[in-house]
């Protein structure tokens, strides 16, 4: 541990005789410029996400499984990855069974090591939930867990995310406080604000760098 002690000792020596600076964090600076009415909140999130090539649909809450089916149909995709242990995963499965959808429902129900090749190359699309949205920046908040693993929103070329209209907050600070993030974060909390992109060649924007080429957000209105 000598590197550790050397570094810390040097830092402490340099700070000798000084006081730590007070915490003068002024939260109004990160909240006041970013406040919206309920309607404009959704409008802003849509506008920002659409500006980075995200497809956004707003629909009554119960209609989303049919919309997912339609999205897959229109793209002529053959399968979709889902999380069977979640509420929305079950709803999707029920819909699939009831309507005899032709796309394969692929359950993420085993460790990645068991099917890495398939997961990396053969999955066309995925459906995941979100724990909220952020109007100020046009972002989704994803809270992956054992039921809905991290790679679901990363590997498939099409990612369909479900966002409850009532869970869109004004800004990052607001959602962080409301959901009390500092009390306990998941292994990997994510903000997603569009499909994967790069501008590394001549600053020309190209979508689908390493993650999803397409992001579709379904904003679910309260029932």
């Amino acid at each position: 541990m000598s590197a550790r002690n050397n570094i810390l000792n040097r830092l402490r020596t340099s700070l000798a005789g000084t006081e730590p600076r007070p915490d003068d964090f002024n939260e109004t600076l990160v909240t006041e410029p970013w406040q919206y009415t309920p309607d404009s909140r959704i409008q802003r999130l849509r506008a920002l996400m659409e500006a980075v090539q995200t497809e956004v649909h707003q629909l009554p809450g119960e209609q989303w499984p049919a919309k997912v089916q339609a999205l897959l149909e229109s793209r002529n995709l053959s399968n979709v990855l889902y999380a069977p242990g979640t509420d929305h995963g079950q709803k999707l499965a029920e819909h699939w069974q009831a309507h005899g959808a032709r796309q394969d429902l692929v359950a993420y129900d085993r460790p990645v090591e068991a099917w890495k090749e398939e997961l990396f190359w053969e999955v066309d699309a995925s459906v995941t939930g979100t724990v909220g949205g952020i109007a100020a920046t046009g972002s989704l908040v994803l809270w992956p867990d054992r039921h809905e693993p991290r790679l679901m929103s990363l590997l498939p070329p099409l990612h369909i995310a479900l966002l409850k209209a009532s869970e869109i907050e004004d800004n990052l600070y607001a959602i962080m406080q409301k959901q009390n993030w500092s009390a306990g974060l998941p292994t990997n909390l994510l903000l997603v604000s569009g499909p994967s992109k790069t501008a590394d060649i001549e600053q020309v924007l190209a979508y689908g760098a390493h993650g999803p080429k397409e992001l579709v957000v379904l904003i679910l209105e309260d029932q």
Binding site: G138, L185, L190, G211
Partner: peptide, 14 residues
């Protein structure tokens, strides 16, 4: 306004 991904990692796989 924000990057496509903001990735907060707090530990290895549980």
């Amino acid at each position: 306004p924000i990057t496509t991904y903001v990735n907060l990692i707090s530990g290895p796989r549980k």
